[in-house]
């Protein structure tokens, strides 16, 4: 047990040092992108849009952008770190040692969660320069952010395990994650869409996550929050089981 805790701490420290060493690639870009979003969408275009769901457009944007940061950063951290470890074969350092698979999963996921939170908090701080936010339920907001970063870290891990070349690492974020995120109600309320597009939007899992977080901040949501919570927890369980199974079988990491 004690050995497992030390191994877990080692992976987490390693991950923190890794993304801190390259903060210009990992922490700075989302901060700059967020500032641009606030200036272009919030200040310039937002002032023409008016209120959305009873709050200003700028206020409406903040929870979505925080979630965007958390989702992308949690995912990217784990997928790139795990794939790099595979590519350089340094993953073997872990595989030859007695680190249990669940500790490998928890360690990498924790690294993703931490980077997601750092970027999320940074985006939150940046947003204070553009608008006022009063979070309705801090604990729930934290809980939603935590679950979201766990989920996307796990998805990143599964992608990292399967990835055989650098292209495989970028396919999911470019062609699946980004479109779903942008169509996930970050920049608009789905109530603005024609009814059939509202139904199609309901199939987008990111819509639930963004709305859940918006609910924790402002108490407003386009979707049923209990269903949204259930969905996140369900997919966390699914991806955790998949990761454990893949590591046990040695898919992509053992011959």
């Amino acid at each position: 047990m004690k050995a497992s805790i030390i191994a877990f701490n080692t992976i987490v420290i390693k991950e923190i040092l890794r993304f801190s060493r390259i903060w210009i690639q990992t922490i700075l870009p989302p901060a700059i992108t967020t500032i641009l979003y606030f200036i272009i969408f919030g200040t310039l275009i937002g002032s023409q849009i008016g209120d959305m769901g009873g709050i200003s457009y700028m206020e409406f944007l903040v929870p979505g952008l925080i979630m965007l940061g958390i989702i992308v950063q949690s995912y990217s951290n784990v997928v790139s770190s795990f794939f790099q470890a595979k590519f350089s074969k340094s993953i073997e350092e872990m595989l030859v040692s007695p680190v249990p698979n669940h500790i490998i999963v928890l360690g990498y996921v924790s690294g993703g969660v931490l980077r997601g939170f750092i970027v999320g908090i940074l985006i939150g701080i940046i947003s204070l320069f553009f608008t006022k936010i009063s979070i309705e339920n801090y604990l729930f907001a934290f809980f939603v952010a935590l679950l979201t970063s766990i989920l996307f870290s796990l998805i990143g891990l599964v992608n990292g395990i399967y990835a055989k070349k650098f292209d495989d690492v970028t396919i999911v974020p470019s062609f699946i994650l980004t479109p779903l995120t942008y169509l996930g109600g970050i920049f608009y309320s789905i109530s603005m869409l024609p009814i059939h597009w509202q139904y199609i939007s309901m199939l987008n899992p990111i819509l639930y996550i963004v709305n859940l977080f918006r609910y924790s901040v402002y108490g407003i949501s386009d979707v049923n929050i209990y269903f949204a919570l259930f969905m996140i927890l369900f997919f966390i369980s699914v991806f955790f089981i998949i990761s454990m199974h893949l590591l046990k079988k040695g898919v992509g990491i053992r011959n």
Binding site: S4, T10, L17
Partner: peptide
């Protein structure tokens, strides 16, 4: 030093 200390950590050796 990190390579060595991390490897020790995987074997449960305190930092």
């Amino acid at each position: 030093i990190e390579i060595l200390v991390n490897q020790a950590g995987y074997y449960g050796i305190p930092r």
